[in-house]
Design a binder for these strands. Sequence first.
DNA 1: CGTCTTTGACCTGCGC
DNA 2: GCGCAGGTCAAAGACG
Length: 628
Amino acid sequence: MSLGMGLSTGESRRLSTTDMGNGERSGSQGIGLSMALPFEISGDMTNRLDCESPRNSRASDSATVASQFISLSSNHRETSPPRVTQQFLENENRQPMNLRNKTSDQPTVVDGSPPLTPKRSSQIESDLHNQLKRTRNEMERMMDENQQMRKMLTLMTAEYNALHQHLLTAVAQQQQQQEAMKSMVPQSTTPNTGIGNGQAQHASPQRSFTEPSSNSVASERSRSPTPTGTGLSRSPKKSKVLSNLSLKMEDSSDGKIIVQPVSTLTSMDAAGDRSPVNRFQAYKEEPQFQGASPDRDHEFASEAQDSGSQEEPSVGPEQSEQNRWPPNKRVKSVLQDTSVRNARVSVRTRTDAPTMNDGCQWRKYGQKLAKGNPCPRAYYRCTVAPGCPVRKQVQRCAEDRSILITTYEGTHSHPLPQGAVSMASTTSAAAGMLMSGSTSSSDRVEGLGPVENSFSLGAHAMPMISASAPFPTITLDLTNNPAASPMHLDAANLSRLPYSFPTANGLQLQPPSIMNPVQSPYYGVAKPTTGAFQMYPTNPLSLQSQGGSVQRPAHFFHDSVTAATAAITADPNFTAALATAITSILSSQTNGSLMGSNPNLGEALKGALAGHGLQIAAAKKDTASQPL
DNA sequence: CGTCTTTGACCTGCGC
DNA sequence: GCGCAGGTCAAAGACG
């Protein structure tokens, strides 16, 4: 910002004073200050003339003032309008001289000079009268100038304020971008957001946004007697290194972070034939950020040498690299930002089964009694692939023990089994949306305290983004579907569900054709408020947070489709998640599920989405999908 | 015998 | 610094 823009009146005074040369400042501080600021000139001069002229019309003073003003004006020609200065100089030079002549005459009377004749006296009187008249005119003109200057000052002040606001806004935006970048940097290296069936891509060593795709050494340890050495121990050093790593990546990023949904393919074979999973990928516009970052790789490689764990022959290079990382450290150090690390997707289902059959294989590695819940919490690790970092926690709801709460965390580093794709893609989309967090406008969730990555939630908002934990959690509540209670929820059944997809924006998502406020567990009304959405629940039972501590009133808000449409189209993250969820639904077409029984539904959905600029990825899991 | 589960101990972060 | 709670480890036992 230039100096002129940032100058308030006070600053002008200060800077102008310091701008002055020493000579000018030494003898005329008071005047100098007023002279230095062009906007103050008229007022000060008016006062000075008003006071000094009648009372003490000493020519020397006036001459001094004039000379001072000359010197000061020459020092502030940038800020003093030349026209005013020039006029003032002319008048000022003229006046003192006249006054001096007049005053110099007075002593002659006292000193016994020749007495004034009446003619001369009247002449002097008329001169004085003229002088007074001229001075008054000058004063009026100066006052006009003063007014104009003040107007200018007002305008400049307004301009300054506007620019200042711009500056503040720009700074705030820059900070937000940096924050977003911070949270997106891990994603940029890990397109496999959430628990989707993303497979590590060779082109870009990837790490989960929740944890950096560790090949769980601990898991390997349990299977192999080979000691993994000191690398397994929790080491603060690694945390610091990785913390620096994040910063490093951030610092080196000058370009613009782009967050966009990316639909990639995962493969069951080595070539990479993958099922469609919608993922949010933040990447730099610079190509190197889409791939491996040399610096990052170097960091990882050097650290990996320290850990000294073994490399799984069957896994890819990036995975083997990850193998060398103690899983705990990767979770807690790479992702220093709480909005980035440990994003979770919680699925609430009503089932009697001990765990939800989501198509994956899990190995229980721990059980703990959590406070406030008599039901123990079980910890599972994905065992589909040896190094898969995905973990899940299974716990029954304290209030309703028929409800099973399954919380997923991490990214599968392997192709998912056929039956796990639907769940994975859904939770992946939810996690991706959660991590995108673009519409965060509220820091608090009702009754849940501060949220790192919460979303717009009004007084009656539904905290589907759970903030009870220090990790951002998105909850997919599937408990209120009558058909789902009780039911054994497997992947196929999940696909058949009339989707109740509470998004990170708090907008309940359901396929349009089944979005029925009566039948559906939720009826979400999207309200585009300041770029975010508010969700108004209709069924309190469906609103149990994971902690079960939030009681929310049931409200029916039958808003217009227009509002929902506007809300949907306003948020690219939501649209992406919407497309993903629907894609997941459509993918079940091949299984003869909901969509299969309603062949027109798919086309209707596609048409509806196309109307919003969305495309539906290929439904078949083994075929390539199109980017959303 | 290999794999999985159980469970007490340990580690870490956080609040006071 | 201490205690608490969540999360993880890893030895021991169970099971096929």
